[in-house]
């Protein structure tokens, strides 16, 4: 690691002030950032820890019936506390990395990093969630902007993520067994006004919506509605774990499984 200063504020306002410094970087659970620092792939002048901020912790339900998850809430807490309200989200959180990672890694950190194979971005996008920061609210459709890219500005912090709770939902992950990241992950969410399908792990541009499947499933929410639909391999990730064609094929398979499990 390169040397850095360290601050651990207790309020969002203090954290925002600490992040105003040139090349300061927020540190949440650190399950991605600390390995990145160890490999000297990042060089912040200062790390601002977000784990001591009480207002960014916990899971609750707001007046609109949405599930509100504090930005610094670890995956293990989401898995436990969202279980009755939004089981598909709880199940997703319970299968990220391994238990020790889930005790430290946070939803805000995952969504801010926007790894193309991370699980949470698919839930945020498929649920049509709102990403709340220290100074605005960003709709999921505007938030994800490509590989490791988001609408976040320099020094902006995710304080909360608000999930509308669907009538039915399921997340299916084809696990890369060593890393437990998604080789392909599909989150399907059925709302009164239609179905949303978000795919992670597959595309070079990160998480995306499979709109063709959404249209078919909105008309008929059953695996059969997807017969004949396929995704082009153009722009899919190709690596030693799978070719673009393999990933494209998996998207349709995992979507069918998710619909079958949700309906």
């Amino acid at each position: 690691m390169y040397a850095f200063d360290f601050e651990k504020p207790t309020t969002v306002a203090e954290a925002v002030a600490a992040l105003a410094d040139d090349e300061a970087q927020p540190l949440s659970g650190g399950q991605t950032l600390i390995p990145t620092l160890k490999q000297r792939l990042a060089m912040p002048s200062k790390l601002v820890s977000l784990t001591g901020i009480a207002e960014m912790q916990g899971v609750c339900t707001n007046d609109a019936g949405q599930l509100c998850i504090g930005g610094a809430t670890p995956h293990a807490v989401v898995a436990a506390e969202a279980a009755s309200k939004y089981p598909a989200l709880s199940a997703l959180a319970s299968n990220i990395g391994d238990p020790a990672v889930r005790n430290r890694g946070t939803i805000g950190g995952s969504v801010a990093n926007n790894d193309p194979a991370a699980c949470y971005p698919s839930a945020v996008l498929a649920s049509g969630a709102t990403v709340v920061t220290n100074n605005r609210e960003i709709a999921a459709d505007d938030y994800f902007q490509g590989l490791f890219s988001t609408a976040l500005e320099e020094g902006e912090i995710i304080t909360e993520v608000r999930f509308p709770v669907p009538q039915a939902a399921n997340y299916q992950k084809f696990v890369q067994p060593a890393s437990r990241f998604a080789l392909v992950g599909v989150f399907v969410a059925k709302f009164a006004d239609g179905v949303r399908v978000a795919v992670t792990g597959a595309s070079n541009d990160g998480v995306f919506r499979w709109t063709e499947a959404e249209k078919a499933l909105s008309a008929n929410f059953s695996p059969d509605a997807l017969n004949g639909l396929s995704v082009s391999a153009d722009g899919m990730i190709g690596d030693l774990h799978g070719t673009p064609e393999y990933r494209a094929h998996l998207i349709a398979v995992m979507t069918k499984r998710a619909v079958a499990a949700a309906s």
Binding site: K8, Q31, I34
Partner: peptide, 20 residues
Amino acid sequence: TCTVNGTRVNSCLSLAVMHD
């Protein structure tokens, strides 16, 4: 693996300064 405030963590993926 060790426990911090009762939950297990990978101590290699945490900085000592985070645990004051």
